[in-house]
Design a protein around this nucleic acid. Structure first.
Lengths: 115, 115
DNA sequence: CCGATATTCAACTCTTGACTTGACTATCAG
DNA sequence: CTGATAGTCAAGTCAAGAGTTGAATATCGG
């Protein structure tokens, strides 16, 4: 796998877990510590800390220690690169459909008298 | 988990696998049968058929049988909904950063004489 | 310094997911 | 009809991932 693909891979694997996506949604509201992020869940702090690690390795968030706390925030650049991958798939496909449609329109016109 | 979230969940779990993303990339070029999709991989046909099933359940692709073949094509609508989830995360965060920046600018101006 | 807070680490369990193989079914071409 | 093609089904293997617990570490407030 190429270098670029390796990082896309980590990103999508990180996004695959509902707890991690929920953490990202929390971070919409601003930076938060690990225990703050853990509050909404019925999970051990260690579990959340592990999720945070995965999110950081995938570059979807960045963190830094401030005293006892580890503050987490979304990294918009990485999120955008996953977004771009999807947009590419979708727009290529939509273009294909457009061309196909045009082609069919044209054929219909050309063969109008055949019917 | 809400109904909406259930479907987002299946989508992102489907996207987490590099083989499945690679299948989607192939489908950029147009519809294809299962064995056509399998060609680039060193995997059994059964394995690819399973991936196709996952992609279909997640609504990222749709398929139909045509004779012996099962033809697969991307479903742009579903792709867009994953894309939208990411875009929401990113833009919310970017807006937060903008507001923060404005606030800091303002504070800097107000306290210019303090330094 | 002391107790409480916020993590971090390591080890272990349990489930799920990817993949295989071999047998079975349906369709096509000659 | 017959062999070859395209896929489907059902087990079963194997490794990776999510979660737990308990002990260890670092920082804060008084």
């Amino acid at each position: 796998m190429l270098e670029y693909e390796r990082s896309i891979d980590e990103m999508f694997r990180a996004l695959a877990d509902p707890t991690r996506r929920s953490i990202l949604e929390q971070l919409d509201q601003g930076p938060a510590s690990v225990s703050k992020l853990a509050e909404p869940f019925h999970l051990s702090l260690a579990a959340i800390a592990q999720h945070v690690q995965v999110l950081e390795r995938s570059h979807l968030i960045s963190t830094h220690k401030s005293g006892r706390q580890r503050l987490c925030s979304i990294d918009p650049a990485a999120v955008q690169s996953a977004e771009r991958w999807l947009r590419t798939r979708r727009t290529r496909w939509e273009q294909r459909l457009d061309r196909l449609e045009q082609h069919l329109d044209k054929s219909t016109q050309e063969h109008r008298n055949d019917r």
